Computed example of a mutant assay.
Amino acid sequence: MYLYLIIYALPFMFFIFERDDTYGKIAHKYLWTLFTLLLMILIGFKYRMGPDWHSYVDMYARASESDVGIQDILYINRDVGFAFLNFLAAKYITGDLGLLAVNVFCGVIFISAILKFCNYYKMNKLAVSICLPYLIFVIGIGYQRQALAISLFMLGLVFFFEGKIYKYLFILIIAALFHKTAILLAPLILFNEAKANKLLITLVLLLAMIGIYEVLISNSMDLMVRSYIDRERESRGAWIRIIILIVPAILFFVFNKNYKKVMEVNEFSLTKWFCAAIVCLPLFMSISSTAVDRVSLYFIPVQVIVFCRFIDLFSTNASRYLFTLITYLGFGAFLIVWFSLSNYSWAWIPYRTYEMFYIF
């Protein structure tokens, strides 16, 4: 766990010791680049990490079989983007290096997309700190396909806020190729203030969703229903993660008028509907906490939006620093609690990589 704590401390250290002079900016640029590379290596070079590791190994093993074609891989794995990536790696890269190449590719895209979203805010160091404990350390390392889909969705949000809905939709389609649940976020364009033929876009989206269901999802939908609903699987810790989402949602509604002054129009509109949906999540926990837990992962950006924009409401630097410290300590406490008490933390501790099997 010490490795995760050290990495978590770095963004806050950059924030504290950040300097405005020329040499300070140059040093900060290089150090931040090294930090970015560190995160990419953390995600890309993991080995036997997370509860789904063997599933990913099996996918790659099937893709490596000499008599298997791309059509067979797409039939086995309905997330066609990830399936195609495994197929290319298995056919053109020798041995386990192919699996490593898949992980590295996903790690680079995952971290790049998240940092692009975090850099949208002035307090980008705080934004990264909010993403580190669960999104990067837990989801990024343990659940590769959905992690990539979430990060691409966050990248798409940057275009969404800027009113570039077609770019948002393009990014979202790519995200859905790696995890089909991402397509459920397409109707969010209805909350965008950009001038476009929304009725036409909605019709196209409905047709696309029907097509995606028939081609990619229908055969696996029964399995998902049995897994999440019929068996009434319980996702331990789901309530804690939902509560952590509800806190910024309540903060947003309490200071709704203030947020409207510091947010972009599309950013405010999306956050408002996201927060409303978050407040409703507990109503569905009795049906399937696992399904709600998985869907709630797409609401993680709300934490970044609300907390980073909340700092803009303060008029003094002392208040900003105090709130930054409180937020940092809060998410740091969540990191410690999760790795200390979660029944599944064994899949993340110790951190293992291809070269050194046990670190910290």
Rank of each mutant, 00 (worst) to 15 (best):
E214Y: 13
E232N: 14
F252T: 02
F255D: 06
L206S: 08
N219V: 05
I212K: 12
G237A: 02
I243F: 15
N266S: 06
I242G: 05
L200A: 11
R309I: 03
R231M: 15
I217W: 08
M209F: 10
K261F: 05
F268G: 03
L207Y: 10
N266V: 02
N266C: 03
T316H: 13
M263Q: 12
I311S: 02
D312S: 11
A277C: 13
K260F: 06
L281R: 04
Y259W: 05
S288M: 00
I287A: 08
K260V: 04
V247E: 05
A277E: 07
E232Y: 10
I201K: 09
S220H: 13
N266E: 05
I240L: 14
L207M: 15
L206Y: 07
F307S: 01
M224N: 12
S289R: 03
D222G: 12
I305S: 06
L297G: 09
I229H: 03
A238M: 11
A276W: 10
I217H: 06
Y213Q: 00
M209T: 14
L329A: 11
S235D: 14
D230M: 08
F307C: 08
S220Y: 15
M263E: 12
I201Y: 10
K260L: 07
Y328R: 02
V247G: 06
T271W: 01
F310Y: 09
Y298G: 04
A196M: 04
Y228M: 11
N258E: 15
K195R: 14
L207A: 15
S220A: 10
Y298V: 01
